[in-house]
Nucleic acid binder design. Structure first.
Lengths: 239, 239
DNA sequence: CGGTCGCTTCGGCGGCGGCCGAAGTGTCGT
DNA sequence: ACGACACTTCGGCCGCCGCCGAAGCGACCG
């Protein structure tokens, strides 16, 4: 190997970046941003490569500790190795140029619109709805961004009223700002963002649209979000 | 271009990652992490490529908005395009494997040791000293990490006593955690981290060692850090 | 006003790496 | 036990991209 040029010391930045520098591997990671585990062939079909090609890419990604794998019978499930990977991909995506939209078909345009409206971003909510929730929480003093985003005392009790206890003492920051790549505005992530999203699924405020990252706000959810955060219905309606 | 495979929508993650996926470009970025502006030939010499090669790489990095350039006479100065780029590179470096240390020469080993001890990381302090300062600030209640890292009221007045006013209302988080790649532990970054580092240079607590990222704590600095943060001398001594 | 220096452009070379298809291994159903 | 299926390995092809040296351009210096 050419060790002459890669002089001396420091982290091997390039080898890590190279893992994301391929369209196919990047497509895998973007898909896995939904926080769920995918099988190898699902990913292969999703980006349109042969299964053998997918295997090689997954080897690289798992070997680089970007993905975690779990074998079940004849299936190989992979998911992002952790929140830190999701955050890395998000910050990379936030400063990447948007790709040519080119939604040729009607269904593709609709799919894109559904994603822009409300979707999961790893383990929390994003899209217009995610941003609106965050804005409302700031406006009501549940979080503030005076010195970086943080949860206020009011926010803690507000979450408690919903039955969400704030995890404390963990290494993961309880609240973190995540830059949305459709809205280009920050929204609530971190442990609290994840807990809130989980709660929204559990209490049927939102449901997944098919098997995609897109979610829909249910009538129950509309009422709850109006009641708890004063969100107007027109933001929550899917069109 | 092959637009068949790069289906549809979303950010072009791969094109952004590709900018950092080359050893030479990564070397440029790691060098620029010192926060200063370098000329094209300085960078070329630093990583050991021909000037013409450096030109091409710089074109790519500037075009991708990772670097900002400034022309002065026959010189082309480049620097990181902003804190967000530094943060991206840091988070990438934090999860990248350490490269084979292989410090063949004595001077290389010494250089590495100096970097591990105290250095600038874009615009704030890192290394053992940077981590120690952060730890002491946490211990003294100047910052807390209850719900993410944040500055306390005591911290604000402490900074005020040093003559540092906390920038407020800016988009940049005033305090942020940055993961050190030698210590593998978080240390103080963000606007406050930058202001503190600047203050340390201005009041001669620290000085640069030659033209590298490494810094040395002066006798003045040792006394000040003992007085203000209770840091013991043995942490601050360079060996 | 010539010489030097920093940077740029261009052509050509070489290697790395992503792609596939064919063949092999293990697991699950029937 | 047998086929179907998910995944893996291997060989070979091809295109991209990073590298350099030669030559050109503009800025600075005597």
């Amino acid at each position: 190997m050419d060790t002459r040029r890669t002089h001396g010391t420091g982290p091997d930045l390039a080898s890590m970046a190279r893992l994301l520098a391929d369209g196919t591997r990047a497509g895998f990671c973007l898909a896995l941003l939904d926080g769920r585990a995918w099988t190898a062939t699902e990913l292969a079909r999703h980006v349109g490569v042969a299964p053998s090609t997918a295997t090689e890419h997954l080897h690289a990604l798992v070997g680089g500790n970007l993905l975690a794998e779990e074998r079940q019978g004849r299936h190989r499930y992979v998911r992002l190795a952790g929140p830190h990977v999701a955050e890395l991909i998000e910050s990379l995506a936030a400063m990447a140029p948007q790709r040519a939209p080119a939604p040729r078909t009607l269904s593709a345009a609709g799919r894109r619109q559904a994603l822009a409206h409300a979707r999961t971003c790893y383990d929390h909510l994003a899209g217009a709805v995610g941003v609106a929730i965050t804005d409302a929480m700031i406006e009501r003093g549940l979080v503030d961004l005076e010195h970086g985003l943080r949860l206020t005392a009011e926010g803690t009790t507000w979450l408690g009223d919903l039955g969400i206890t704030v995890p404390t003492g963990t290494r993961r920051p309880s609240v973190r700002s995540c830059l949305d790549w459709t809205e280009r505005r920050p929204h609530l992530a971190g442990a609290v963002g994840a807990a809130l999203c989980r709660h929204a699924f559990d209490t049927d405020w939102i449901t997944r649209i098919g098997t995609t990252r897109a979610v829909a706000v249910t009538p129950t959810g509309r009422q709850a979000l109006r009641h708890h955060l004063g969100l107007p219905d027109d933001i929550l309606a899917p069109k």
